[in-house]
Design a binder for these strands. Structure first.
Lengths: 129, 129, 129, 129
DNA sequence: GTGGTCTAGACCACA
DNA sequence: GTGGTCTAGACCACA
């Protein structure tokens, strides 16, 4: 279900976090459901248990999952998962705005670049669902 | 002239690059003018010479400056400087668009976030905090 | 009779202990009455026999129940049950006081937090969410 | 400055976190000041660098400090440090209230126990500064 | 088996 | 040197 790219600049533990958040948002892991154990997921992903553990602990710190020693890890809040993704994306957008302004790009032009880069959509006459 | 923020997430070498590009675009370092030596700039910025060296090498790779062995480094192209800044900013905007879309942010909303984060200017109805 | 919450931070063996003490204090298990065997309770609760065993052993160590080799476990003292619960709660309150003081919370404020967190009852002006 | 108790049930990384928060709140580490490096603190405390790293990363996740690769870790917000301590203490108080109520302790009595356990104060006629 | 903690040691980008 | 990532492997409480 989760695929890792060992070449990526994105740390493995972060890829695992994103993968789990994605599964939660897709509804594949409803609230209250049990996640694979740290060790079993580590085996499945060919990663070290410590790396999976780090991902689980960050997700727990964000309120996305809850881990209970001896029993397992459970999905706690899909809303928290959504909020985590959103917060990161908003920060990226804000940083992009500052960088674009410094580069002499105008606000209108930046909006155009953003719009054209939007995945899965056309530049003009586009329709969104 | 260039100020570094040691607590910023932006690598020092990138801050130096941006600082030099900024001076070029401001006209403070016209094409053909000589840049400070790696060592003297390192001293002036309280930075590591290796770090300054890395910045100069990247700038040279981008065609912004030219280093002439034994004689120093010179501003080569203000146009290249402008292009570098712009290219980086466009890439950042495109990456931000992809991340925002993945996070479930709508295109309209993303444009709003971008606009509100724009430094310096205000749209009607905006307030600075 | 006893319900376990696998997602709770409270260890299962402690939940079992509290459950049995609760039944004793409610009069559902009078002194001298026989408790279910470790194995049958484990089956009933879908718990590990080792976990039930640990709960029984702690309760025995506290004088709440008595295990007679080969014949089963019996409620020994409702008074001991009451004392155990009370002692644990008092220790928790004392630890909470120390932690709150260290965190710079005033004694009055701590009393207010305690009171507001009190389950079930309301003081005037309180609202439940 | 920070002393560890290897026997304690409190994890070493948490002891380090608490120690640093304590130093910040005491004013020994003002905002913007640089903390000892992960490695140097590990040597000073006879702990593993990974353990110190974990403490630093949790503190960063809470907004208490900011770490920048190659440059060091800096105190970011004394207010965040205060909030972390406070949040933990409030949660402990709330859990204590629930446990006391279950144990049949009355709200008034619990307040008395809390007050008597308050460190450095007397039971009656006490004065606070 | 399950999460959690800790040590040891390697490697990386950046300074 | 400085933070950050990752693996390997040990040990613990709890189930």
């Amino acid at each position: 279900m989760i695929t890792l790219d060992p070449q990526s600049r994105v740390p493995i533990y972060r890829q695992i976090e994103n993968g789990i958040i994605g599964l939660i948002l897709l509804g594949a892991c409803p609230e209250g459901s049990r996640l694979p154990s740290v060790r079993s997921l580590a085996v499945k992903l060919s990663a070290n248990p410590n790396t999976v553990q780090k991902a689980y602990q960050e997700l727990e710190g964000w309120g996305v999952i809850a881990s209970v020693g001896g029993r397992g890890s459970f999905v706690r809040s899909a809303e928290a998962a959504r909020a985590v993704l959103r917060r990161q994306a908003v920060q990226t957008l804000e940083a992009a705005a500052r960088e674009a302004a410094l580069a002499g790009i105008g606000r209108e032009e930046a909006a155009g670049i953003l719009s054209r880069a939007w995945p899965g959509e056309k530049e003009e006459g586009e329709e969104d669902d």
